[in-house]
Structure formats: structure tokens, C-alpha cells
Design a protein around this nucleic acid. Sequence first.
DNA 1: GGAGTAGTACTCGGATACATTGTGTCCGAGTTATCTAGG
DNA 2: CCTAGATAACTCGGACACAATGTATCCGAGTACTACTCC
Lengths: 156, 156
Amino acid sequence: MRLGQAVEWMLHTCLNLSWVDEPVSTARLADIYRLPSAYLNKQLQALAREKILVSVPGARGGFRLARDPAEISLLDVVVAVEGKAEAFRCAQILRNGPGGDPDVDYSSYCVVSQSMRRAELAWRRELAGRTIADIAADVVRRNPDAPELVRDALTN
Amino acid sequence: MRLGQAVEWMLHTCLNLSWVDEPVSTARLADIYRLPSAYLNKQLQALAREKILVSVPGARGGFRLARDPAEISLLDVVVAVEGKAEAFRCAQILRNGPGGDPDVDYSSYCVVSQSMRRAELAWRRELAGRTIADIAADVVRRNPDAPELVRDALTN
DNA sequence: GGAGTAGTACTCGGATACATTGTGTCCGAGTTATCTAGG
DNA sequence: CCTAGATAACTCGGACACAATGTATCCGAGTACTACTCC
């Protein structure tokens, strides 16, 4: 199992954007961590499509959070980047097995599938229970001047 | 995020093997679900390397479980197929950010990384808490003659 | 001096290549069972 | 009839291609700002 790098990028980017009000351009967001800006832009678009960010076109445009950081869970971000499909895809191979019935939906009946789904649900629940605001609070607790540093880097 | 098909194959295969004592050849294990035998063999080798299965060479050889089904967790199988690496890889991009310190290990310090790891731990815990024997018991409860069907299909 | 207008610089957005991983296949090395020949 | 050996069939095991996904890039469409010109 593997998650793309973009997940890390987007989480940190959302966190940074939670400390800024005005739109920030892709170039600024990329420079802060020395990331490839064009590719970052692609991922930002994905988040915009999922209504996590809003894109502002034109000069002095960019991206900003679409809603309060407390209303953006880590799961929202992960799903926006990686897609909604489940990690474990049941191909229903039991249909071909002995005693297999082509009319049964094994993705809900098969015990293996159920077990894998339960684990994935635990993962999702954990991610859904933690928001950008939660993380921001933890960061500030450790490093009180982090917001100021980020603001300076993003808004000249 | 995505898990390979082989995970499903291996879980069902381990389950089937839990009902047979003698070694079963790759061809037999593949035929039961109409799977490509050569590719299945590749995955079986991976499980053998991780000491979940033992391979018996020569005529009348094949694979059998290396230990009691109650001692084989779903996590063992998933890790054997997908590798030990974590799904979320922290690239420590904070080192490049404002106030970033090249000497700090952000994979343990960074709050984002911690949050992602916690979720993954929940996933792993769920998988580690469920064994092949547990699944076998559930299957028998629903379909008492399943073991007999599988045995017939695997041992002529 | 103020307003309208043309130009310009900057932004997103999608279409386009490259790299890595997952998926699938093939053939050779090694082992066991079988058959045969000899005692 | 029993035993030893050669043969043959079957198995795993790793090396070899193909496809899909992730990663990275480029250029065009559109917007806001700016400067200039005219009233």
C-alpha cells in the first residue's frame, strides 16, 4: 500500500493557508518547501474540485481555503488527492470458486472483504476525526511563531 | 491509496490452505479461482520468504501453511505482499520550510506525520487482531461444508 | 484632474511526456516418483 | 521377489516483458492591475 507524496504536500499547504486570508499563488506555495510548482498546481486543482480550496484567477490570484479549518478533516484532503475508491478492491473471486454463485454480491458477503473493509474504516475514522484546525493548534502550541513565519513567507 | 489484487488472492489462498494438510501446487491453487498461475506463484513465493508458507519442491510438492492459522494475522499477509514500508512516507519537507532545521527528524516530530501514522496504526491494529483462523471460523459458521468443497477441489 | 481604454503581467487550467510500480509470462534448476533391469 | 539405478514428469524459483498509475512539465485562456491618453 502506498500514498502519493502529494498527500503530504497538500496537508502542509492547507495548514499554511489556514494562517493566511488572502489568496496565495501556486508559486509561493511551492517555493516555501522547494516543490515543483506545476505539479503542485495540479494537486491544488484537485482540492479545488472537491471544494476544499477555492481558486482565484487573474493577477494577485491564487488559492485559499474554501471553509473554516475546523471543517476540513484529514480524510477530506486524502480523498481529494487519492480518490474515493477503497484501498482494498474486492474482485469477487469467490464467484469462480467451488460453490460460487454469480448472483451473490461477495464484496459485502465475503468475510475476507468484510475484514479488510473494517480495517480501512478504522483508518478513515481516525483521519476523519482530525482536522486542519487540530493540527494547527498543536503546531502553535509547540512553535508559537510558526504562523508568523509562514505568513511572512507567503505574503510579501 | 491502493492495495494490489494479490492481497485478496493470498488471503483466500491462506484460508483454503488452512483446510488442507498436504502441500498444494500453484496450479491447483490458481485453478480454484481461475487465476493466472505464474503470477500467483510469484506471490506465493513472497509469502514463503516471510515464513507464512513453506514451499515443497519436486513432484507432489507445492505450498502449505508454515504455522497454525491462529498464528497468521491478516497484517502478516498484507505486509508480506505489499512490503513493510508505511503507506504515508514523510519526506520531511519541513526541513526546507521557514524555520526548518536540517538536523531535526521531522518524520517523528512533524504533527502531520504523527497524525497520518496514528491512522495507519489503527489500520494495522485492526488487521493484526484478526487471523486466518478467525475468518475460517466465520466461514464455517455460515457455510459448514465449505472446507469439504475446498478440500475436494485442491486434493483429487 | 479625472475617466476611459489599451496594454501588460500574472494567475489558473488542462493537455502533454517521463518514471516508477503493479501485473503478467516464460523457461531453467532441482526433487520425487516411477519404471526397469539385475541379483 | 527385492533392490539399485536411470529416466521422466512435475514442482518451485527467479529472470524477463507489458500495462497502469504516479510524477513532472509546458503552454494557452482569462483576469486584474497599470499606465497612458483624451476630455
